[in-house]
Nucleic acid binder design. Structure first.
Length: 319
DNA sequence: CGAAACATCCGCCACT
DNA sequence: GTAGTGGCGGATGTTT
């Protein structure tokens, strides 16, 4: 079993602590997600105050970080508050032991002060990126990144980027399928789309473009209205069915047919929202052989019927 | 709704 | 030895 150490310093931000708990601390074995132990670690064992009057109980002292497979360092209320020297020692020891460490939000300040970011690329919340760079000239701060990995040292940008990084770490540990499951259970996208760039030193988190799989996905999205088979997509990608299916799952977390189905349903949602086409015509436009087939899949993915969904949007447009 | 036809998925294994 | 590939066949899911 994998052990994840959540390193709690006084006034750690409750949100990032919560993200760690949500991603690593919940038993989802019923959905095929391997069990992980989330270990709460303080400089010493005992209660640790968090933000907003909340508090946590550190079950372990800092030395226990060395038995972990991954160490998370949440940001603190006052990003630049002094860090206990023992905490800095602990961080150095973790990195020296080759254990991956990931800071969330302003947790990067803790890593920077310990020196483990020297010479490495890193990011943090945009509001403190300048000061971090000024105080630690040896750190290569990348203020636009959602998260950055350099070797086994990871840093993430503000607040919600903690989710993106944690899901990425799940992906690189257990595979895209597990990450997609965790994301689905959290009702969040498996990786954030659009806008923000995601700089990653090593394995790129999929669909980031450039791969043959991503190219085929682009093509398929432009031809959703016609019947497509997995074999046809594989041929287009220039690989055997087997290899295509395997790489597809590794990159996107879905099997080709499941992905296609999902894309078709998403497309149908967009068309239904416009309210100009009948359900029958929407089905045809999205590559469903009949309105009945659309209804089946729409219900499974969206949880309601196409006509009902269309009505909801029509009513909303009235207001 | 159920049955038959069809497509997809995935473990296994040989091969490079 | 390790990593990636791709063929095969039975289980599973989808379409008609």
């Amino acid at each position: 079993m994998r052990t994840v150490g959540l390193f709690l310093l006084p006034d750690a931000r409750a949100f990032e602590v919560g993200v760690a708990v949500e991603v690593w601390g919940i038993d989802r074995q019923d959905d095929g997600v391997p069990r992980t132990e989330l270990r709460t670690v303080g400089v010493t064992a005992g209660p640790v105050p968090l933000t907003n009057g909340l508090s946590a109980l550190a079950t372990h002292a800092a030395a226990a970080l060395l038995d972990c497979d991954l160490v998370l360092v949440p940001g603190r209320e006052d990003s630049f508050a002094p860090v206990p020297p023992e905490a800095l020692d602990a961080v150095r020891a973790v990195v020296a032991a080759g254990i991956p460490v990931a800071s969330l939000c302003s947790g990067a300040v803790v890593l920077a002060r310990s020196g483990v970011l020297d010479g490495r690329r890193a990011t943090t919340h945009w509001r403190i990126a300048d000061r971090l760079a000024a105080e630690h000239p040896a750190v290569r701060v990348e203020p636009d990144a959602l998260f950055v990995g350099d070797g086994a040292v990871w840093t993430s940008a503000g607040t919600a980027a903690a989710i993106d990084l944690c899901l990425h770490l799940v992906r690189s540990t257990f595979g895209a399928g597990v990450a997609a499951t965790v994301a689905r259970r959290m009702v969040t996208p498996p990786h954030r789309s659009g806008g923000q760039r995601q700089y990653v030193e090593t394995p790129v988190p999929a669909a980031a473009g450039g791969t043959p799989i991503a190219a085929v996905q682009d093509w398929a999205r432009r031809h959703l209205d016609r019947p497509l088979t997995v074999a046809e997509l594989a041929a287009r990608a220039g690989m055997s069915d087997r290899t295509f299916a395997r790489r597809f799952v590794a990159e996107s977390g879905r099997t080709p047919a499941q992905w296609l189905l999902h894309e078709r349903v998403v497309r149908s949602q967009r068309l239904l929202e416009q309210g100009e086409l009948t359900v029958e015509r929407v089905a045809t436009r999205c590559g469903f052989a009949s309105a009945g087939v659309l209804r089946t899949h729409f219900r499974r993915v969206v949880g309601t019927t196409p006509a009902g969904y269309q009505r909801t949007f029509a009513a909303r447009a009235q207001r």
